[in-house]
Design a protein around this nucleic acid. Structure first.
Length: 552
RNA sequence: GGCGCCGUACCCAAGUGGUAAGGGAGAGGCCUGCAAAGCCUUCAUUCGCCGGUUCGAAUCCGGCCGGCGCCUCCA
């Protein structure tokens, strides 16, 4: 196996919303990649939508690392709640409202639901981002960004609030050829495919209620009315930052004025991300991100998930099955597998039937994984031993000693394995198919299909006599793509964190005892052992070369 | 009203010009003390409907029908 980073050999194309086309990915400064993703507003428990977005970009994060990139993944926590009501002056901050209802401090609301979010995403198999900045911790920086935009002449102050002047911005863009050719700039509307003039024409004239020069203008800084709890001092009086400002500010602070990837839910494309682009041009004269990725929305029983429709499901409800729409509980890994079985740019519809099918598919894949890991038992044991010797705890935060990159390097790059015979050729084709699928805009459904094919091939009789090198390559591919890239693992691993060595020793003994019983044709005892273990989540598999076990 | 997406077998879901991936469910078989797991075979002459372009279309164009989403900050 060669030690160069995989990204030098393995192609990756991504769908860039900015140009509505799939294009080759190239990092600004390889091997580093900067990625910013819009995170949650923490005022209620995490739901399926949060999980989908987090899972999608978790896989992007993982695959980039798998390719050998050093990724700084920044995802914000919005803890300055946006105003609920469109009529800003009459509106109430969502976090403040929840705080009032629960009779606690706003920051207690933030803390509670931040923890709830973290716990949910951890259970969904999402790695923590490299940095998770909060809006409330970056008020000064946000004020500075507003000042820059004002200095650039693209914002105006009115009665203690500051608004972005879209008319001016769009006019500048139109008159500047460099910003019309898709090169260095983005006129307002390009990302979401909207035409500025149409937007202007269709805007309701809400200017009467506010001080905006045009209905499209958005607030950079908002004056706090007396009833607003969350407020900070600024050059324009007491107030709070505008709805779109934190992302511009924090992405710039941690990733620079221009970085590689900006992600978020499709619902944020307009106006949030358009506003970010406009703000970046106003403050820094540049497009913030080179690639914009948007994860599509989800539906439940064919309809948008909304509280008013009675199909709004939180993660906790999903995990426990405690929701009128659910016929059973679904575990975090099953949910993750289910989401990954459709492409991130498609809508995914949650239904009992589809989820139940995914549960079976997930179990099948896990069995395949465990079969692969039996082939690699020696090297996995060595890894575990090395891990045990490593000092202190490790995390994905901070400098990445990257086991994900290592997993990528352990798998042969496409076209580097020579196959001898039909079977070997078929195996190699599926290994290559995994790389190809992920390189095709993170196409997890195709990747999963290839993994099913691969695990099937490795279970065929002729695979037993295949060269050791091929068997290991196949097993490492399954292990690497399932665990490191897709982030899927057997369910009970996360729950128990059991000591695998101890369990193995016990299982060895139990299997030996049962073998003796079977030899003596004492099937009552043999079946009792098997049934008892099965009830405890351990499935025995009697094969030609003895009995193995997998967890269920 | 503006913008956009989707409609592929019983269910989910890839495929976007070259003769229908994968998973689940179903049927048959192999293996097995019986199982489980796995493997093999089978399961859409057809891709919402109607036209058109093409040697050739699920894939391109037009129309129609049906479902959905965004523009309401919700991921």
């Amino acid at each position: 196996m060669d030690e160069t980073a995989r990204y030098e050999h393995v192609p990756l194309t991504v769908y860039n919303s900015l140009r509505r086309a799939q294009e080759p990915f190239s990092a600004l400064e390889p091997p580093f990649v900067g990625m910013y993703v819009c995170g949650p507003t923490v005022y209620s428990d995490p739901h399926l939508g949060h999980a989908r977005s987090a899972v999608v970009f978790d896989v992007v994060f993982r695959y980039l690392r798998f390719l050998g990139y050093r990724v700084r993944y920044v995802r914000n926590i919005t803890d300055v709640g946006h105003l609920e009501d469109e009529q800003a002056d009459a509106g109430e901050d969502k976090i403040a409202k929840r705080a009032r209802l629960e009779r606690v401090e706003p920051m207690e609301v933030v803390q509670r639901y931040t923890l709830s979010y973290h716990d949910g995403m951890r259970r969904m198999g999402c790695l923590p981002p490299s940095i998770e900045p909060r809006a409330s911790g970056h008020i000064l920086e946000q004020i500075e960004v507003v000042e820059r935009i004002v200095e650039a002449g693209l914002a105006y102050e009115a009665d203690g609030s500051v608004y972005f002047d879209l008319q001016k911005y769009a006019g500048d863009a139109a008159s500047d050829p460099a910003r019309r050719d898709g090169g260095d700039g983005s006129p307002y509307g390009q990302l979401s495919g909207r035409v500025f003039e149409d937007l202007m024409a269709n805007t309701r004239d809400t200017a009467g209620a506010e001080q905006k020069r045009s209905g499209l203008d958005f607030a950079l800084w908002k004056k706090a009315e007396p009833q607003h709890i969350m407020r900070w001092r600024s050059p324009w009086g007491e107030g709070f930052p505008g709805w779109h400002l934190e992302c511009t500010t924090m992405s710039t602070r941690y990733l620079g004025e221009q970085f590689d990837i900006h992600g978020g839910g499709l619902d944020l494309q307009f106006p949030h991300h358009e506003a970010e682009i406009a703000q970046s041009h106003g403050a820094f004269g540049t497009d913030p991100a080179r690639y914009w990725l948007h994860s599509n929305m989800l539906t439940v029983d064919g309809q948008k998930m909304a509280k008013s429709l009675g199909n709004f499901i939180t993660l906790e409800e999903m995990f426990t099955g405690a929701h009128p729409r659910l016929e059973q509980a679904f575990s975090p890994m099953v949910l993750r597998f289910f989401m990954l079985q459709s492409h991130y740019r498609s809508t995914v519809d949650f239904s009992n039937e589809a989820l139940a099918a995914a549960e079976k598919g997930y179990q099948r894949l896990m069995t395949g994984l465990q079969h692969a890991e039996q082939v690699l038992a020696d090297e996995i044991a060595a890894e575990a031993a090395a891990l045990a010797e490593a000092p202190l705890e490790r995390s994905s935060v901070g400098p990445q000693e990257d086991e994900i990159a290592a997993a990528g390097r352990a798998i042969p790059a496409p076209g580097t394995v020579t196959a001898d015979g039909d079977h070997a050729a078929a195996v190699v084709a599926q290994i290559d198919a995994c790389w190809k699928a992920m390189g095709d805009d993170f196409h997890t459904p195709k990747t999963i299909a290839a993994l099913f094919e691969l695990t099937r091939l490795t279970q065929r009789p002729e695979h037993a006599s295949a060269p050791d090198e091929l068997r290991r390559a196949a097993a490492r591919t399954v292990r690497g793509f399932v665990r490191a890239v897709l982030g899927l693992h057997p369910e009970e691993e996360a729950a128990s964190g059991a000591a695998p060595d101890r369990l193995s020793a016990v299982m060895e003994l139990v299997i030996a005892l049962r073998a003796e019983a079977r030899k003596a044709k004492d099937f009552a005892t043999a079946d009792r052992i098997r049934d008892t273990l099965a009830a405890a989540g351990i499935q025995l598999e009697d094969g030609r070369d003895g009995t193995t076990w997998v967890t269920t």
